[in-house]
Structure formats: structure tokens, C-alpha cells
């Protein structure tokens, strides 16, 4: 029996009224991704998204440093070897050349999934209407100004500015 009343997905209105604030505080390659993936997904669902980069996460919006984020298996006990799925022993994590290799390998695996590298990912988030903000204290600490940051960063703001701006938002700390 065919339904007479068509089933139409509910895409809601153009503005969902939902707001999300993601605090990116880590600058290692592996920890840069969670905020970007969630922020991008939220934008695709019509959510207003603000990304706030602080402490080590500040490197993600630094023009030069954002291209050179690194990954290290040191102290990461969930790191498994690509072959056999064996947990990587920590003595192996320390050997010279492991950090560049692990960085290359992780980026290679991420690329295979057609997930963009960090600078391109931020381009996409920005093109999707996401807002990028730098943390004032991190900028002062590192002696950096807007000139050092991506063009699409809207401003360097204080913690209080951020709290005010994200009134009613769901907050994620990464």
C-alpha cells in the first residue's frame, strides 16, 4: 500500500537557534581534529558554531604553525602498531625519528579518509559560516597579534568576552 501523505524529512527552519562553542586547547595533530570534526558537523546541521583557540590550541590558527602540527606516541598508551594491532611499547615511542614518522603516518591515515589537513579544514569551517576566535592571554603569552593569525580569525578576545558571546551555547572543551 502506498502512502497517500508523502513522508518529508524534517529539516527544521533555516535557523535552528542552536549554538555551540568549542574550546580548542590542544596543539598536537591528533587533538586538533576532534574540535574541527564536531564543529564542521554542527555547521552542517545548521548550528551556529564558535571555535575558541587557547593555549596550545593557538597553534591551530597561527599562519605558519598550523601547517606543522605534530603527533607523538609518547605517553599515549592507546597507540597501537599499524600491523597486528599490538600496543606500542613506550620505549619504542622514544626512539629518534618516531615523532616525524608517527606524524606522517597519522596524517596519511586521515588523508585516506578524505578528511582535510588542519589549514584546509579551517578554510572549510570558515566557508560554512563558523566563527574563529583567538584567546587574549595566549596571544599575550606568545607575543602574537592578529597579523600572525589566519585572515578569517575574527578577533583576539578575553575569556570574559567569550563567555558573554556564547550565552546559551553548548560548550565543548577539548
Amino acid at each position: 500500500m502506498a502512502n497517500t501523505q508523502p513522508i518529508v524529512p524534517n529539516f527544521g527552519s533555516e535557523s535552528t537557534g542552536r549554538k555551540m562553542a568549542i574550546i580548542c586547547s590542544k596543539g598536537n595533530l591528533d587533538m586538533a581534529y576532534p574540535g574541527l570534526i564536531l564543529g564542521n558537523a554542527a555547521l552542517g546541521e545548521g548550528v551556529e558554531v564558535h571555535l575558541f583557540f587557547t593555549f596550545w590550541g593557538f597553534d591551530m590558527i597561527h599562519k605558519k604553525r598550523q601547517k606543522k602540527l605534530k603527533f607523538s606516541p609518547v605517553g599515549n598508551f592507546a597507540m597501537h602498531l599499524p600491523i597486528g594491532g599490538i600496543r606500542m611499547p613506550q620505549w619504542l615511542a622514544w626512539i629518534p625519528g618516531m615523532q616525524p614518522f608517527a606524524t606522517w603516518y597519522l596524517q596519511h591515515e586521515i588523508n585516506k579518509l578524505q578528511v582535510p589537513e588542519v589549514p584546509d579544514f579551517l578554510d572549510q569551517i570558515s566557508a560554512s559560516g563558523g566563527h574563529l576566535w583567538g584567546c587574549k592571554m595566549s596571544a599575550d603569552m606568545n607575543k602574537l597579534t592578529m597579523k600572525d593569525l589566519r585572515e578569517d580569525v575574527e578577533g583576539i578576545i578575553t575569556a570574559a568576552d567569550f563567555i558573554e558571546m556564547t550565552d546559551g551555547a553548548q560548550v565543548l572543551f577539548i
Binding site: 529539516f11 533555516e14 535557523s15 552542517g44 545548521g46
Partner: peptide, 8 residues
């Protein structure tokens, strides 16, 4: 395809 392009 405003707001939810992938799904729309």
C-alpha cells in the same frame, strides 16, 4: 541548500 546542505 541553506542550513543543512548535505542532507538536503
Amino acid at each position: 541548500f541553506p542550513a543543512k546542505p548535505a542532507k538536503k
